[in-house]
Simulated scan of single mutants.
Amino acid sequence: MTPELGVIEGYFGRPWRHEDRKQVLTRLRGLGFSYFHYAPKADAFLRRRWREPHPDAALAELAELSAHCRSLGLRFGAGLSPYELYRDFSGPARDAFVAKLRSLDAIGLDDLAILFDDTRGDVAGLAALEAEIVHIAQAHTRARRVLMCPTYYSDDRMLDIVFGPRPAGYLEDLGRRLDPRVGVYWTGEEICTREFGPGHLARVADQLRRKPTLWDNYPVNDGPRMSRFLHLRGFTGRPSVIGPHIAAHAINPALQPHLTLIPAATLVAAYRQGQGYVYMSAFREAAHAQAGDELAAMLEEDLHALQGRGLDQLGEDRARLRARYAAVDHPMAAELLRWLDGADTVDGWIEDA
């Protein structure tokens, strides 16, 4: 069973260029993906500066992107992170929130995601406050589908270390309070989960009183460490047997939009092929289909250097790789060159770049 597949552009670092986004979404639709949620951490007007309106040019670009998705039959959504709104959801703050929803409605939303990820969670009554905010959004948006991401969106204890200890029974409380129609994003046992299993997903579904929507942090490569690697290998640890246990499966893409197409295609293959899936064969097939024969062969030859060793361990190979890919006229080769030049490294979790 292949679940609904989507992409949530929810990484730290430089957002994709508008034209790249349109081109890649066209190809993702052809692969079988059915929705896209725009939520880059660097869009400050969706996060720390959410009370401020987007500049007119940015709104026009998003409206064009929405229309492009609609022309493809791809659901378009935005992820709004009303930064720490739960600390003060008084009249003025509520009014500002509703005004923001209306401005997002104007660009044409099929989906609206309210995201509470990567913010402090040591707040009394956190689940009740988040549910209230989501229900206000549900009542005022014209989007036909509403999702949310909890503050504690994984079992990973790193969230408790960075954002404060999670309240006891948080997921159960959230699941009990949320309208059953609201989808819930979940990254798994870890923030960057190695494997999703039916047992884990069934437990989370029981806690949330609904099947989770996966926010899969592969092939994303943001942050100070991961941005020094290219995530190109085929998906592993996503067996097709998880399909009945989830509402949908969305990937958080890499900083390199065109290169993202290779692993994205392997996720489709993993579900379609079931027990017959072989991740390296899927990589080869996807690379040849998305990059062409010459570039695909080069990427496979250099896979260990690009994904295993990473930018800081390339040494003299860095210059060799740069000369090798500079000779290829292809968007993926251009992205690889940019990465080799260090232009995609993320030196910190900087949202408002």
Rank of each mutant, 00 (worst) to 15 (best):
V220A: 15
N217Q: 06
A63T: 13
P165M: 01
H37L: 15
W339H: 01
W349L: 14
D155A: 14
R322V: 00
P167F: 00
D156E: 06
M148L: 14
A93P: 08
F163S: 01
R120H: 11
Y185N: 10
H54L: 15
L85R: 02
Q138H: 10
R176W: 01
D173R: 04
H140N: 14
E190G: 10
Y86N: 15
Y170H: 13
A124C: 02
D347W: 02
L336Y: 00
Y185G: 10
S154T: 10
R225I: 14
W215A: 11
I107H: 05
L321N: 01
R284T: 08
R209E: 02
L104K: 04
A334P: 01
P212T: 07
G310T: 07
I242Y: 09
A326R: 12
T119Y: 03
Y11L: 14
D95N: 12
A57D: 15
D293G: 09
T345A: 13
G79V: 05
E351T: 10
G310Q: 04
V24C: 11
R228H: 06
A319G: 00
T213C: 15
L255V: 01
Y38W: 15
G32H: 04
T151Q: 09
I8A: 13
L255G: 00
D118N: 08
A334Y: 00
D118S: 12
Q275W: 06
V204W: 00
L340Y: 00
Y35I: 02
T260C: 04
P219L: 05
